[in-house]
Amino acid sequence: MAEWKTNNLSCVNVWSTLFIMRQHRKTFKKAGDLKMKELLFYNPTLTDPELKFEAEGIADFLDIVFKNTYRAKYEAGVDRDKAFTDITNILIDKEKTMAELAEQVDKDYEF
């Protein structure tokens, strides 16, 4: 189980940015266990390529906010494509949780 803590900026920024994007309405305490399929973008009637397309849009926006608003840097060995692909792969996996998404963000970004 990935750690979900208020003193971890990856957790807080993932939660806060997805809230602003209207992807969820959960309090921080409850959002860690929220699964990707419970986010607004995860339309189960889409084809896989369509769903991935939507997930890529979310991943791109998260990357912009992390870089610009929260002045994050990529960790050593990580570039835009790796971070983008990592986030997208979590987003399209319906059983992954927000805590697991934050854990991946923590590996790719330094806040």
């Binding site: 309405r25 921080f28 929260y70």
Partner: peptide, 18 residues
């Protein structure tokens, strides 16, 4: 500004009522 936004986020994460 980033520091102030982080401070706002900390206030938001402390809210327990949806």
């Amino acid at each position: 500004i980033t520091a102030s936004l982080n401070a706002i986020n900390q206030k938001l994460v402390a809210i327990d009522d949806e």
